[in-house]
Design a protein around this nucleic acid. Sequence first.
DNA 1: CGCTAACGTTAGTTTTAGCTAACGCGTGTA
DNA 2: TACACGCGTTAGCTAAAACTAACGTTAGCG
Lengths: 115, 115
Amino acid sequence: MTDDGAADQALRALAEPRRRAILRLVAHDELAAGEIAAAFDVTRPAVSQHLTVLKNAGLLTERRDGTRRLYRARPEGLDQLRRLLDDIWAGALDTARRLVEAERGIGEDDRVAAG
Amino acid sequence: MTDDGAADQALRALAEPRRRAILRLVAHDELAAGEIAAAFDVTRPAVSQHLTVLKNAGLLTERRDGTRRLYRARPEGLDQLRRLLDDIWAGALDTARRLVEAERGIGEDDRVAAG
DNA sequence: CGCTAACGTTAGTTTTAGCTAACGCGTGTA
DNA sequence: TACACGCGTTAGCTAAAACTAACGTTAGCG
C-alpha cells in the first residue's frame, strides 16, 4: 500500500485552484451551492461538479435544507493527506539529516552552507 | 495572496501518482535519471518531464556528475505544502470545534454522535 | 394540481496534461 | 577530431479534465 486511493483523490482534488478556493469559503461558514457559485465567474454546474469531486474526496460534507444543499469543509479529510505526505518524506528527512552530518565530518574548512 | 504559487506547483506535481512514485525512489537514495526511468514502463523522456515538474515545484534537487544527472528528494519542499494545507484547514478545525460544543449545548438528550 | 426555485446530471466542446518519437546538447574517450 | 553515451527538449498525438448549455429532479407554495 504505497499509495492510498483515498489520499490520491484528495490530492487530485486539491490540485485545482478553484477547488481550494471553495474549501476556503466553506472552511469557516456553511454555505449553499448557489452562494458558492456566486463567488466565482464560472457557471453553477461547474461549481456543482467541483463540489462533487471534493465530496468524493472526503474533503467536505453535504447537508440538505429544503431545496438547498449546504456544504462545509471536513477537517478529517486533511489527516489522510498529511499521512501520505509524511510517508513520502519520512525517508527523505532521515537522509537529509545523515547528509548534513556527513558534510560536517568531511570538510568544515572549505565547505560553507549549502543553501 | 490566498494561494501561493509555489505551493500550487507542488500540489499539482504531487497529484500525479507517477511523480509520487519518483519521489519515493529518490527519498532514500540519490539516483540518476536513467535509473529512475528504468523503474517505470514509460519512456525516459516522459520521466525526464516528470523530473522537470518536480524540480520546478521545489520537491527535488538536481546534481550533475559527468553526463549523468543525479536527483534527490528535497524535504524542505514539504514545508510550503504543509503550510498551505494548514492555512486552508485552520478555520475548519476551529469551526468544527465550535460546532461540537454547540451540539452538546443544544441537545445531549436526543442527539447522539454525528459520525 | 400547476408553478417556481435551487440543485444535480448529462451531452458535447474546449482546454490541459502526459505520452511517444525524433532531435539537440554537453560530456567523456580514443 | 570523431564517436558514443546520457539526458533534456520539442513536436505532435491522445486521453483526461474543466467548462457551457440543455434537461431532469426534488422541495415548497398557491
